[in-house]
Structure formats: structure tokens, C-alpha cells
């Protein structure tokens, strides 16, 4: 079976019913998608299959033969955060971080098909994603900030608590 993950082509001989989550994490060392419930109900394993958000724990390899898979690693990395990653950082949308890659991937898919979502649209799109830390408000704030075009200068970890106003308003791009 053939699979492209974050732009790299792979030829796989795994069991066709193996969950894509395990193929990514254990065979390809792509560990952004997290193994949470492995029952489809927490959202931490969410990835993009040909641009659409999917649960990798529910997806057998056979269903993605020939597909283009994008994980959080394909959206941006620690040296170059994409806008959503920077916004989650800026707005404290991540605490332990376990839900974060799934949240960002789902938010990315939402903004691709609906660049100007209402807060309710965002809540609906993230309905299947559980966060045990943040209380969701900061996650919604972060996604709304990206949707209204707020930009972020920082790349990673160079920000002091309490200075978000100045950072948030002066940036050029994420």
C-alpha cells in the first residue's frame, strides 16, 4: 500500500486493517497524532486525509491506500510555527498539549473550508475533541484570532507572560 505522509512517499506492507494511527506512530515515527482513547471519541489522533479531518485510530490502512496524509508535523514545526500553532501558543490554548495536535489539525481543516467561521462554527467543528486542561475558551479564542487575521511575530518560546497585547498586534506573519 502506498501512502504519502507530510509530502514523503511510503510503501507499506502492514496489515490492511492496522489503524493508521499506529502506522504513523510506530512504523513511520510520526508521533504528532496522539493515541488517546483509540475508540474514536477523543480527537487526539486527528489527521488530514486528502485535506479532510479524520480520526487516524478509526481509519484502517486499506481505506487510505494512495492518499495524501498530513499531520501536525506537516503544518509547521518548532522553528516555524504556522498561524494556528502560534495562536495556540500566544493565547495559552495548550497546557499539557495532549489534545493540541488534534485540535489544530481540525481547526486547520475548518479554516480551509470556512475562512470566516463564527464561534459557534468553531465549537461545532471541534465537537469531537476533548481537552482536559484548558476549559476550551482559550482554544476557541486562538482559532478566532487566526480567523480574523491576527498575525504573530514570534516563532517559539521567546515570549514573556503578560505581553500578549504588544506581540499580538505588531506581527507580520506566522
Amino acid at each position: 500500500m502506498k501512502l504519502t505522509v507530510n509530502g514523503r512517499a511510503h510503501d507499506l506492507a502492514s496489515d490492511p486493517l492496522r489503524p493508521l494511527l499506529h502506522v504513523l506512530r510506530d512504523e513511520l515515527d510520526v508521533t504528532g497524532p496522539k493515541a488517546g482513547c483509540q475508540q474514536g471519541s477523543c480527537g487526539t489522533c486527528t489527521i488530514l486525509v486528502d485535506g479532510e479531518a479524520r480520526r487516524s485510530c478509526l481509519t484502517p490502512l486499506a481505506l487510505v491506500d494512495g492518499a495524501e496524509v498530513t499531520t501536525i508535523e506537516g503544518l509547521g514545526d518548532a522553528t516555524r510555527l504556522n498561524a494556528l500553532q502560534a495562536a495556540f501558543h500566544q493565547y495559552y490554548g495548550a497546557q499539557c498539549g495532549f489534545c493540541t495536535s488534534g485540535m489544530i489539525v481540525a481547526a486547520h481543516a475548518l479554516l480551509e473550508r470556512n475562512p470566516a467561521p463564527t464561534r459557534h462554527d468553531i465549537q461545532t467543528a471541534l465537537a469531537g475533541h476533548i481537552c482536559r486542561c484548558t476549559g476550551y475558551v482559550k482554544i476557541l479564542d486562538a482559532i478566532e484570532a487566526v480567523a480574523r487575521g491576527e498575525t504573530f511575530t514570534e516563532t517559539n518560546g521567546d515570549r514573556q507572560p503578560g505581553v500578549e497585547e504588544s506581540v499580538a498586534k505588531t506581527g507580520v506573519s506566522g
Binding site: L17, Q39, G40, R55, C57, L58, T59, P60, L63
Partner: peptide, 18 residues
Amino acid sequence: VLGGGTALMPELAAGGPS
């Protein structure tokens, strides 16, 4: 039969048939 696998995959993950 495999449709979307959203019911089948959790059963397999929970130690269902292989």
C-alpha cells in the same frame, strides 16, 4: 464487510478478531 470502519475499528482495537 467494511464501511467506514468507525464501529469495526474500535472493536478490533479492543481485542476483537484478527
